[in-house]
Nucleic acid binder design. Sequence first.
DNA 1: CAGTTGACGGCCC
DNA 2: GGGGCCGCCAACT
Length: 109
Amino acid sequence: MNSFRLIYDVVKRIPRGKVATYGQVARLAGNRRWSRVVGFALHVNPDEENIPCYRVVNREGRVSEAFAFGGGNRQIELLRADGIEVSDEGIVNLEKFQWEEGLYLYEME
DNA sequence: CAGTTGACGGCCC
DNA sequence: GGGGCCGCCAACT
């Protein structure tokens, strides 16, 4: 619950034109093993207008299959609207578009 | 009320 | 280098 708040806070901080991975969000939220919890937190997504869950992708830079929250590949269009390159398969080039914040942080436990 | 699973990732073998 | 197992919190059955 409090963990969810931290996770949402991190996701809200993702700048436009950048994406973050689940593990990255988990690390910034305070515990890198929360990757699974991050997925669930975004699953409930209580405030989808302020929580850009479409900017969160998995470690491979791929959007999740169960991501059809608004309908089909709408998240891909949202990402492209942010200026992010997304392949038709829903793959994002993390080398170019991954959010820099937190990458230099190691352990926060 | 208790067990299992889930938008994943890291670490061990 | 690849495959499998474990972990963390909350919701669902």
